Amino acid sequence: MWYETVEGTDIVVLDRRFKACFAGHVRVERLWTGARWCEGPAWFAAGRYLIWSDIPNNRMLRLADPGDQISVFRENSNNSNGNTVDNQGRLVTCEHRSRRVTRTEIDGSITVLADRWQGRRLNSPNDLVVKSDDSVWFTDPAYGIDGDYEGDKQEPEIEGCHVYRIDPKSGAVERVIDDMVRPNGLAFSPDETLLYVADTGATHVEDGPRHIRRFAVGADGRSLAGGEIFAACSEGLFDGFRLDTEGRIWTSTGEGVHCYDPDGTLIGKVLIPEMVANVTFGGVKLNRLFICGTTSLYSVYLMAKGCKPG
């Protein structure tokens, strides 16, 4: 496997707290290029591999560690977008074209977890996270049905774009957030007392939201309160993001990855020479940040660790 130092990449320290996240000699590496729109990276610890989506090319790709060898994991992926790993080590995926959330079983078969809410088809599930109680939380903007580039142009059946929860026992789909324009990336804090959700409504509404909101999770593990703005994006839009064990948010932006302290301070940046859509933590120690740029996959080693695989 070849590695290269990429022109236009840099680690920018805005606050001394960010400097502690890196060894002094670390650089950003470009691992592969050749996609149209990279998204949804998910790390599978048992197999030591990364899976991510190339949405317009209707495929999913795989990086195997050690060696960082790249191969096609799945063709005809229904224009898959977000991916994650559940608590049993299975792949869970948001599919634009089929307008559903699916789980790939250990034998390779696919189970549909959600494709409707109150009898109406979902818009185009975008990103998702699995909680420790096995519930699946996902966002459902309409990017996959707005046109034919990331799915199939279709009419929405649900008014608005919302956030949903799939109950782990009954499989019931419950709407948990209904006041966003275009909900996108989402993740829980390490102790799961907080849920962060990005709203990329500025893509469709003039002066629309380009921020991450923070919700308090109730004692029942499913109800939400609050929803205040945690951070506003200064470069493009927030899309997908992940948290480390210290509660720092590592989020995609138009210029790379921004890192926020739990107190909301932007403490540093990892500059990438193209728009970034999503990130995840991987590697044996969960200290390698994988970065999905528009056309390429990047990584950088950290002194920080992801709070969970996927």
Rank of each mutant, 00 (worst) to 15 (best):
Y3K: 13
V13N: 08
R17I: 01
K19R: 11
C21M: 14
F22L: 15
V26P: 05
L31H: 09
W32D: 15
A35S: 10
R36Y: 13
A42W: 15
W43F: 06
F44Q: 02
F44R: 01
R48I: 04
Y49N: 09
I51E: 13
P56N: 07
Q69Y: 13
R74V: 13
N76Q: 14
N79M: 14
T84Y: 04
N87T: 13
V92M: 11
T93R: 12
C94H: 11
V101N: 01
D107N: 14
D107H: 06
D107S: 12
R116F: 01
L122C: 06
S132A: 07
D148F: 05
Y149F: 11
G151P: 11
R165S: 10
A172V: 12
D178F: 13
V181R: 07
L186T: 11
S189L: 06
D191L: 10
L194H: 03
L194C: 01
V197P: 01
D199M: 07
T200L: 00
H204G: 05
D207F: 11
H211N: 03
D220G: 07
R222F: 07
L224R: 00
G227V: 09
C233P: 02
G240D: 08
T251A: 14
V257N: 04
D261P: 01
G264M: 12
G268P: 12
G268L: 14
K269R: 15
K269E: 15
K269G: 07
E274N: 12
N278C: 13
T280W: 08
T280V: 12
V284G: 02
K285C: 11
R288T: 11
T294F: 02
T294H: 06
T295L: 10
T295W: 12
A304N: 06
K305R: 09
K305I: 00
G306C: 10
P309Q: 03
